[in-house]
Each structure stands twice: as C-alpha cells, then as structure tokens.
Design a protein around this nucleic acid. Sequence first.
DNA 1: GCCAACGTTGGC
DNA 2: GCCAACGTTGGC
Length: 137
Amino acid sequence: MKWLIKSEPNEWSIDDHKKVGETIWDGVRNFQARNYMREMKKGDLCLFYHSRVQKSIVGIVEVIKESFPDPKDSKFVAVDMKYIKHLKCPVSLEKIKNSQLLEDLPLIRQSRLSVMPITEEQWKILMDFSEQGNSGK
DNA sequence: GCCAACGTTGGC
DNA sequence: GCCAACGTTGGC
C-alpha cells in the first residue's frame, strides 16, 4: 500500500530524515492514524508532508519495520522509516486542492489526520505533479 | 497568532 | 453512555 504521513518541519523535517537515513516514526497520538500504521507493511512507500509551515508534499520514505508499540506510550504504535528521496518539486496543498482528481484525499477531507492511505491512482497523479514543477513552494 | 474543527476526557 | 469541557492540530 501507499501512504501519506505528516510532520511539522520545525519538529521533524524530510531533511532531518535524510541526515539520519533510517529512523523511528513515533509520537502519533490519534487512534485512526494508529490503525492505519498497524496496516503498514515493510516496503510500503509513504509521502512525506510538511504541515503548517510549508504545506507541501516534499519527499518519499519507506517502511522498513512494521508496527511495534510506541516506546513512549504503548497504547500507540510506531514504525521504522527509511529516507528514499526528495520530490523533484514539492507538491503544495494549494495545488492538491485545485485538482478535482484529488478532492477525496483525506488530507483535504480531514485536515487533522496525520497518517492516511493513498490509492495507486492518487499516488500516480501526485508523482506527475512532482515532475511538473510550478507547484509553488 | 488566531481560531475552527475535531478527537479525547471525565463528570454525571 | 452521553455530552460539555478541554486540548491539539493545522489552515488561514
């Protein structure tokens, strides 16, 4: 499956993730997001979204270890993620909103959800956007 | 920085 | 088990 995960770049950015390569993805404190994380499989790819400050999808990471109890709160779960790459051009929230093809993305529908599944079709559209440029910063 | 939306908590 | 109060997220 494919996913989209959010992070505030002030707290954890795609650049931080690039530096360390592989790291734990923890701190998710929402049951719906947790349930999605439990479904993540090794090898699944995730879009990395910067919330608040940049509001753009900026890169791709890969699940390298499936869900295990969050070390800080065992009611929730964490996974391990490996940095794959930055997108050629970030895909802004504005651009996603303007695309009718993506209006069903939970990112639009449910702005507070921090982990969400992405369909193959949505993934493909977003990959196209990331190649096109002029997506704004 | 504000505040709407929404998830969670806790008193009843 | 309901729902008001509270806390947090994240777009604007």
